[in-house]
Every structure is written in C-alpha cells, then in structure tokens.
C-alpha cells in the first residue's frame, strides 16, 4: 500500500524550473533513495515532499491530503532532517533530541515523563546516553549526525525524510549511519526516503532508487534497473562503470587512457 504519494510536483524560481511535473509514490516500509547530479533538484524535491516548501501539485500521506493537515498533524506523520541542520549554541544533546517530541505536545504543554523516557530510549539506541549533557558544539561530525537521526526518531513518525545524511562523514561513519538507519527502519517499521550522492551506497541500502536530472525523474526502479552505466555516464557527464562485487553493485569512475 502506498504510504506517500506525490503528484505533478513543480517549483519555479524566477522563471527557472527547479522541479517539473514530478510524481512518485512510496510504499510503507520501503527505503527509497533519491540520487542525481548536483542541481538535479533532489533537496528541493525532498523539502517539497515534506510540505516545507510551496509547490504546485499534490501530496498525500496515508491517503490524506498533506495540505489539509495542520503543521502539527503533518509533523506527527513525517520527520525531516535537512542536509545542514541548525546547531543552536549551548544546546545539550538531551534538549536537542527532546525537541523531536514537539509535534506530540500541545502549544501550552511541557514534556512529561513519558517523553523523557522515550527520549532516553532513543538516546540509548543511538549510543548517545553518555553524552546527554554535552553541548552539540562539542560533538564530532559522526556524533552530531546520530543526534539529528535521534531527534527524527524521537518524533515517532511512520515516515522519515533525510537529506544527504552521509555528507561530511568518512567512509566508516557513512556505513555506520546507514546501518543504523536500516536497523531503525526494521525495528520501528519506519519508511525512509533519503537523498544521496554515493550511488554505490544507495544501491546497497535502497529498495528502490529514483534518479533525478534537471528537475525531473530520469529513471526509477530497483537499483540494478536504474544504475545503468550508459544512463549514468550521460546524466553525470562522466565515464562510469557498474561492477558487481559479492552480489552488490559498485559504481566506479572509469578513467579511459585518452582522458588520463
């Protein structure tokens, strides 16, 4: 069953088309990765899908029109982590993750022990329990990334949108972050939509890949269907090879002798 459906999404800025008639659907429990070259419209698409950016077209989640929902109702259904989340100075890890509970509290209410316990549980899952009192500024890139994910999970939504969650992480931390997302997805039955740059990682973790180019969907389907070397070479303007290593697809740049 489709958890999320987008129909005919379009965004224009100063007569430049950033997104053009994008339609897609996401099934419950799926991991969908949106990939594409720089400027393809991945980030715009994700923020439009999260209802955070005005656009033409329609969006629905669990069969309800997104524009009919109040911001709070929407935030109880989908969590969104931007590419560069704000780091409020002096804010502790505890307070930051606790902000994820916001949509579950009425305007005047304060967090209750139930929220505190839930956040504690989430902190434990992200190995953040020992640094709850530390400020966000004192954390490393990998730890910070875990905080952002923890906040999204504390939001307890069926759908999580992550905008390039592995940017600025080294190879090990990229893998750890994606493994964690995979684990959480299985544990919490969360549906995940991620924008990514690394095609190899995208192919290894995703159920489905949406390849964007110039504000439109260029291809969509299982990783093996989408990651076609000729198509990638054309869209990215680069020579690439798609290899199969231990049953996994690996996308590598291929340097021809004339180019070297």
């Amino acid at each position: 069953m489709n958890l999320f459906v987008a129909n005919g999404l379009g965004v224009r800025i100063d007569d430049v088309s950033i997104l053009n008639d994008v339609s897609l659907s996401v099934k419950a429990g799926e991991w969908v990765s949106i990939v594409g070259p720089n400027g393809a419209g991945k980030t715009t698409l994700l923020s439009v899908m999260a209802g955070l950016r005005p656009a033409s077209g329609s969006l629905s989640i669990q069969g309800r029109n997104l524009s009919d929902l109040t911001p709070r109702e929407r935030a109880r259904l989908l969590a969104y982590v931007p590419q560069h989340p704000e780091i409020p100075p002096g804010m502790t890890v505890n307070s930051y993750v606790l902000l994820g509970r916001t949509p579950h509290l009425s305007f005047l209410a304060m967090e209750g022990s139930r929220d505190f316990r839930l956040v504690e549980q989430v902190l434990k899952q992200f190995d953040l329990s020992s640094m709850g009192q530390r400020t966000l500024e004192s954390l490393s890139g990998g730890e910070l990334q875990r905080c952002h994910l923890a906040r999204a999970i504390a939001q307890a939504t069926p759908l999580v949108f992550l905008d390039e969650p592995t940017t600025a992480l080294d190879l090990g931390h990229q893998q750890q972050a994606l493994n964690r997302i995979r684990l959480l997805r299985e544990e919490h039955k969360v549906t995940v939509v991620v924008t990514m740059h690394d095609l190899t990682l995208a192919s290894q973790y995703s159920d489905r890949i949406i390849l964007m180019s110039k504000g439109q969907i260029a291809a969509e389907g299982k990783p093996a269907e989408v990651l076609d070397p000729t198509r990638l070479s054309e869209l990215y303007g680069a020579q690439v090879k798609v290899l199969k290593v231990d049953g996994h697809l690996v996308v590598v740049p291929s340097v021809s002798k004339e180019n070297s």
Binding site: S95, R114, F116, L118, V119, E120, Q121, H188
Partner: peptide, 21 residues
C-alpha cells in the same frame, strides 16, 4: 508509533533528561 511501544509506562529510574529542571 512504534517507538512508543518500546517504552515501559512507569518503569525505570527517574529520567535523566529532566536534569535541566
């Protein structure tokens, strides 16, 4: 939502996230 199900209603020690109090 699934995360809620993980949380025991009244079990465990006093939550540490409330220390700013």
């Amino acid at each position: 939502m699934p995360v809620k199900e993980l949380v025991a209603e009244d079990a465990g020690p006093r939550p540490v996230v409330g220390v700013t109090e």
